[in-house]
Lab assay of single mutants.
Amino acid sequence: KHCVKCNKAITSGGITYQDQPWHADCFVCVTCSKKLAGQRFTAVEDQYYCVDCYKN
């Protein structure tokens, strides 16, 4: 599998969101770069925000 963000191979520790593979380090808030894996977040038009950034 290849990460949908960076297009590099996922060798271990990847996550899946909406049936797409991601590196955990690539699945981050677009505003603050906080890792979103296992966290609550909001998706708006294929942009992902942590709860704090989305509220602001």
Rank of each mutant, 00 (worst) to 15 (best):
K1N: 14
K1E: 04
K1M: 08
H2G: 06
C3Q: 00
V4H: 06
V4F: 14
V4Y: 05
V4K: 02
V4N: 12
V4M: 03
V4S: 07
K5A: 07
C6H: 03
N7V: 13
K8R: 05
K8E: 15
A9S: 12
I10N: 02
I10S: 02
T11I: 13
T11S: 06
S12F: 03
S12T: 15
S12D: 15
S12L: 07
G13Y: 04
G14I: 13
G14E: 15
I15G: 08
I15A: 09
I15E: 12
T16Y: 02
T16Q: 08
T16K: 04
T16F: 03
T16P: 01
Y17T: 11
Y17F: 10
Q18L: 08
D19S: 11
Q20V: 07
Q20C: 06
P21S: 09
P21E: 07
P21R: 06
P21A: 11
W22A: 05
W22P: 04
W22K: 04
W22H: 15
H23D: 00
H23K: 01
H23P: 01
H23A: 01
H23G: 02
A24Y: 15
A24V: 06
A24L: 04
D25V: 05
D25P: 04
C26Q: 01
C26I: 00
C26S: 01
F27G: 03
V28G: 07
C29D: 00
C29F: 00
C29N: 00
C29L: 00
V30T: 03
V30Q: 04
V30R: 06
V30M: 09
V30E: 08
T31E: 04
C32N: 00
C32V: 00
S33N: 11
K34I: 02
K34M: 06
K34Y: 04
K35D: 14
K35I: 09
K35M: 12
K35Q: 12
L36I: 15
L36T: 03
A37T: 11
G38F: 04
Q39N: 09
Q39A: 11
R40N: 03
R40Y: 03
R40I: 00
F41W: 11
F41E: 14
T42F: 03
T42N: 01
T42W: 07
T42E: 12
A43D: 03
A43I: 02
A43S: 12
V44R: 09
V44A: 12
V44H: 15
V44K: 13
E45Y: 05
E45P: 04
E45T: 11
D46K: 14
Q47G: 12
Q47I: 03
Y48A: 11
Y49T: 14
C50R: 01
C50L: 00
V51I: 11
V51Y: 02
D52H: 14
D52N: 11
D52I: 04
C53Y: 02
C53G: 00
Y54H: 09
N56F: 11
N56T: 04
N56A: 02
